[in-house]
Design a protein around this nucleic acid. Structure first.
Lengths: 342, 342
DNA sequence: CTGAAAGCGCTTACAG
DNA sequence: CTGAAAGCGCTTACAG
């Protein structure tokens, strides 16, 4: 069962494939092709179940209508929701998306960008890992349409859509302060990326503004590939029996940390929020039904995904005169649940 | 900055692009091209940063090294983990994957299959929605490589990898019975698909084998697009104050149902497992840290994803003499936590 | 051992 | 208004 091609239709009707191509691309009017013939072409195309070969189109036009998406891990619900939104918005405009999980590994992301480049994708949406500055710079140099999400490199001028992490952490910390917590800890991860760093900065600033000295022992920066036991150790140091300057609250910079953290806190027999208050970035289902539903910094994932696609497609549409650089910073909202007490 | 092509390299070296193509495809030995020239070609390719145009290759060879993946929703962690595994295994063999979320909507999946077909993907991995039998049949008719995951249509002979849902539900129900529960309910969703139906069948069989009459009032089949309030209603009917034949346990057929269910149970002020025991299919993080960690039917997602890719690639490799039909049924395991008491 | 040439399925100037 | 032809960047029979 060979697929039908343009020529098949042309032969069948005794016309040229030029004509068929024009009609099928909706340019019948433009080239003033008789309505009669237009109708026949469309009819026959349907009869023969014609499916245009996008690969051939792509080779000819240089456009594949495909976007490359590089995120840390599609199995992580944060990126899952983001990916879903991107897929959906892209589909609205006739674009497909190739998904790549880089695991925060710059070598992987390098290979993935090369692969996507060979696949002739029209543009990229990237959540760049640490040490991938060169890759991003080379995209800039090549005038390739792309937009960064979730993080960016302050020293590289390019489109990006991120969240105001400083502000988010500041407000979350403030929330704890207002509820009377004094010894607020921060558990974060050493991604070496601006988004995580800003969270800790916002946390520090809130303490400063409340005239609370910053205790570096209350800031736990775990390695990227942390496991349950690393979090458990940090928790023990912060709120365990032998903790010196026992924390009365924790700001978790990621939900992975938070989920592990809650497990550890429970294992120690401590109660949330009585023994320890908790706020976390991100809003997974787990936080809605856990022992004490968790107050969270909720990111506008849908908006990030949607805007990223729109920016990118806009850029793709104007390859010569790229639109104005867009550096979008969205606000988060603090969803208050029970984990901080009242 | 135009990309370098085969001819660029050929011109640069004063050889034919045939030769360059042979060398770069590792066929230098085969065609006994002098080592000297091979080395030069490879060198120059590197110097000029040659990236083969996969689209052109695809047009010429009819192979794109791309897989189309259609699942219900990539934002759902179940499919997220599955998708991740598929992406990873595909990448191992040099394949990329285009992700599509069908939302259990056959019209969407129809469009997505058409789109993927136009993109000339080499094969499909599909989690087919209800009423998509015709789409699958037309793939069979077209001798297109594909494998179904998570569900299948018993009346259509084709590769599929699923889990023994009957057995899983049977064992989960049995676990509740052994712990002394008598009024076991089942909350499920009306997908109209064999996987969900088998779960309820397994549940029923376990009751039968224990000589417990089946009470249809204890089986709640919610519409596919159920919301929190639909689950809340079902829960109220099962364990609310005015419930006639009050349930003492619930088997949730999906984790979305279970998560909503736990919220509702908490809202009613009931305690798990004292007032009501719970078992659920799937194993999201939420179940690990919730009020009473949930006993679950854990599916071997990694194995499903990995095997699906392997079957598919095997099929793609042998387009004429397709390998033997594979209908793989994997076992689940029951992870026992606290939600059923002891 | 190496090269000239055809062709994958399209689009699009160009000619009439 | 319509068609013949070139060409996107490859691969691969074929010839020598």
């Amino acid at each position: 069962m060979k697929k039908t091609s343009l020529s098949d239709i042309a032969n069948h009707l005794g016309v040229s494939k030029t004509l068929v191509s024009f009609v099928l691309n909706g340019k019948g009017k433009e080239f003033r092709i008789s309505e009669e013939i237009c109708k026949r072409v469309i009819e026959v195309a349907k009869e023969m179940n014609y499916q245009p070969n996008r690969i051939a189109q792509g080779l000819r036009t240089g456009r594949t209508n495909t976007i490359g998406l590089i995120i840390a891990d599609i199995a992580n619900p944060f990126f899952g929701i983001l990916g879903r939104e991107i897929e959906q918005e892209a589909a609205r405009f006739g674009y497909r998306v190739i998904f790549c999980s880089s695991d925060e590994n710059p070598e992987k992301s390098r290979q993935q960008i090369a692969m996507l480049q060979q696949s002739q994708v029209d543009g990229y949406i990237i959540s760049p890992p640490k040490n991938s500055e060169d890759q991003i710079r080379s995209l800039v140099r090549g005038h390739v349409p792309f937009v960064l999400i979730d993080r960016y490199f302050p020293e590289i001028e390019c489109n990006h859509i991120v969240v105001d992490n400083f502000d988010a952490a500041y407000r979350a910390t403030n929330h704890l302060l207002k509820l009377g917590r004094k010894k607020i800890a921060n558990i974060t991860v050493n991604l070496g990326l601006v988004n995580m760093i800003q969270r800790t900065e916002g946390y520090k600033q809130a303490l400063k503004d409340a005239n609370i000295p910053i205790d570096e022992n209350l800031i736990k920066i775990l390695p990227f590939s942390h496991e349950n036991k690393d979090v458990a150790k940090a928790i023990k140091e912060l709120v365990g029996k032998s903790a010196q300057n026992r924390a009365d609250a924790i700001l978790f910079s990621t939900s992975k940390l938070g989920i592990n953290g809650i497990e550890s806190i429970s294992a120690l027999g401590l109660k949330i929020p009585d023994d320890i208050a908790i706020v976390s970035f991100d809003n997974p289902d787990a936080y809605k039904i856990c022992i004490s539903p968790v107050t969270v910094v909720n990111q506008p994932l849908k908006e990030i995904g949607k805007t990223a696609v729109q920016l990118l497609l806009n850029e793709i549409k104007h390859p010569d005169s790229p639109p104005k650089l867009q550096e979008i910073i969205l606000k988060t909202d603090l969803i208050i649940r029970k984990s901080c007490g009242s």
